[in-house]
């Protein structure tokens, strides 16, 4: 759980605060987390899915935005707490579905995180400027660290809230011993139904990529080139 909070902090800092390289993107962060906890297959699943779904949902200007990257880390960390199915050796599709839902909900809830932090930053930023005006180096450094601390706390606490919520959600569904993995009866009765979440949401992700990367006049070309490419790959 603490590793998840750390990963969430790094993701939050990279996506919103410092550097804005791509290490906080789901396709990088989730897979890295997956390798760290020895479940790379989960990292790839959530990394690719959430990356595509949130391509069309970027942080633009001062507007509210969904915390898709934090949602992806929450989903990955929650799913990684459940052992692979004893029946198939793979993660159970029911767990994947529940964690996708959790990640989506927390990504949406994350829309309120940036406004909250920016409101808190009104005072911190003003104090930093005042310290610079007074040429008070130590106070300026202190307010810089305070600003960083606010962001670190926002990323860590939000991720922690998501993983804790996921813990209780899965415990509610699978009972106290969910960490041992869902039993054969659960896997047998739900895998076929829940596995549809992968093609369904991947389709939604492909549409999100098209929406983000092209104007409407180019959609026809995307579909034609995409169909030709799919035919070649098959």
């Amino acid at each position: 759980m603490w590793w998840a909070a750390l990963a969430g902090t790094v993701v939050y800092l990279d996506t919103s605060v410092i550097g804005q390289t791509l290490i906080g993107q789901p396709i990088v962060a989730c897979v890295a987390y997956g390798f760290w906890v020895d479940r790379p297959e989960l990292g790839l699943f959530f990394g690719v899915l959430f990356e595509l779904l949130w391509l069309a949902n970027l942080q633009i200007g001062a507007a509210k935005f969904s915390e898709g990257s934090l949602g992806a880390i929450i989903a990955t960390a929650t799913a990684a707490r459940v052992a692979p199915s004893a029946a198939t050796g793979d993660p159970s599709w029911m767990v994947m579905l529940l964690c996708v839902g959790l990640g989506l909900v927390f990504a949406h809830l994350g829309r309120e995180l940036a406004p909250l932090v920016r409101r808190m930053m009104n005072r911190v930023a003003a104090s930093y400027v005042d310290a610079c005006v007074r040429h008070d180096q130590s106070a300026a450094r202190g307010w810089t660290l305070t600003a960083l601390g606010v962001h670190v706390a926002a990323g860590a606490l939000f991720t922690l809230a998501g993983v804790v919520a996921g813990h209780f959600m899965l415990r509610l569904y699978f009972g106290e011993f969910y960490a041992a993995g869902p039993g054969e009866s659960v896997v047998g009765s739900t895998d076929a139904l829940c596995s549809g979440v992968w093609p369904g949401l991947l389709g939604a992700g492909a549409a999100a990529a098209m929406l983000q990367l092209t104007a409407r006049r180019d959609w026809i070309w995307v579909m034609l080139v995409g169909a030709a490419g799919a035919w070649l790959l098959i």
Partner: peptide, 14 residues
Amino acid sequence: GLLGAASVLAASAS
């Protein structure tokens, strides 16, 4: 952008 979107569509649909 067009090629990026088409490649995602092709890779996922295939």
